[in-house]
Amino acid sequence: MRRLNRKKAFKVVKELDAFPKVPDSYQVKSNSGATVSLLTFALIAVLVISEFNYYLGVTYKYDYDVDRNIESDLVFNIDVVVAMKCVYLGADLLDLSGTTHTSSEEQGFKSEETFFEMTAAQREWLRNRKELLARHEEWRSLKDEQIDNYRLIHTAMPQRSSVDVPSNRQPDACRIFGKMFIKKIAGNFHITAGKAIAHPRGHAHMSAMVPRQEYNFSHRIDHLSFGNAAVGTLNPLDGEMKVAVDRNQMYQYFLQIVPTSFSFAGGQAYAANQYSVTRRERIIDHSGGSHGVPGIFMKYDMSALTVSITQDHQPFGSFVVRICGIIGGIFATTGMLHGFIGFLFDVIFCRKKGVAGSMSPRPARASQSYVETESSSLTTDMRIGGGNSVGLSTTEH
């Protein structure tokens, strides 16, 4: 009784088999099927390897939120070289609250005499920086590539060593560098002719004390950033170089600062401030309607949004699901395509064969004495008696 119940249970389970086996005698193998199979296996191998490499890598998640940390200060880092002597230049920073920071060592900005001509190492750095910025423009939409490739990039230009200082020349440029804590509000950092002086209605520069022939606002921005340095960021003004074509040249840079935080899988976290820039330059000509003050002006403003970038790995379960989807999807798709192409081939081939057969001539008759029998009947009467006689009669119509 138990064996009978067990056989019934096995039979029920067998009926639930969703993968019935087809006997080998019913399977037909063809050259086209073998070709499709090889192509399918090759495609699966390529996609599985690509998916495995993606699983070993990392992914980045981008979140946007309103910046609520508006009370904290912001570090402003600057390193710029202007083709004028320091005695003729004045650099200061003025924000919307009326706070003014001048280029004095107590305030954070320093200035020193230098040469505008670059050394071989500085020219190499500038060339690499421009190449990197051009690549950044191509990778603008590939944010993950940006973080991975900018991880170990140094943004500071190599300084001039004592060996590179010309002995027979006097310095012809001024280097203004340093950092300063500023408020997270809009402001304006500018470099123009004449030292800055206090004024009841704002501030002013003693540009009247500078001879006009000394004006030359050709400049090179070695570094300009906001906040601490962090991986994955590239400052768009690093390596910026402009050569003035007129003594009354005015350069304007409009900067939009976006607070950004990075969180990596290893537990490391960084906070930085990325910025975008819009450039504008023109020649000051009051008689022509172009008013202003010659110099270098950098106007910045804070964005109301913050960007949070989180590094993460793909879960193993998601990796398995994607692999199963690749294998099953390719098998199903190639099977359907192979069947559909075979069906079209059979239809076209059979149609052509039928047309060719209908156009072939009919064979001629063998002789004119061909007789077609419409009907015939055969009557056989077999009688078996004592004499074993057999009678046969045939009637044709």
Rank of each mutant, 00 (worst) to 15 (best):
T380F: 10
E396H: 13
T114Y: 00
N235M: 06
R279I: 00
Q274F: 00
S360F: 11
Y54M: 08
G385E: 13
G386K: 15
A186S: 14
K110H: 13
A120G: 12
L237K: 09
A120M: 10
G292L: 03
H190F: 13
R282F: 14
V355W: 01
G232C: 11
Y88E: 00
L392I: 14
N216W: 07
S30V: 00
S225Y: 07
G335Y: 13
A193E: 02
R351L: 05
D222W: 09
M241F: 11
L74A: 03
S303Q: 01
D148V: 13
D222I: 05
A45K: 06
R247A: 13
T155N: 08
L47G: 00
V347R: 14
G295S: 12
L337D: 05
V36K: 06
D164K: 02
S207C: 11
V46G: 12
L56F: 12
F19E: 05
E15P: 00
V12G: 01
G295R: 07
G328W: 07
G267C: 04
G335V: 06
Y370R: 01
E131V: 08
L56G: 03
Q107R: 09
E106S: 10
V390E: 08
K195N: 12
R127L: 10
R175M: 00
F115N: 05
D24Y: 06
Y370D: 13
G295I: 01
L39G: 11
F345R: 13
V12I: 15
T155P: 08
T192K: 09
H101R: 06
A173R: 07
R175W: 04
R322D: 05
V12P: 03
Y270T: 12
A34Q: 14
S111P: 06
G33I: 01
K11C: 00
F181T: 02
M336G: 15
V13R: 08
I384A: 01
L89S: 03
L142R: 12
T99R: 02
V243H: 11
F316W: 14
S104V: 03
T114E: 00
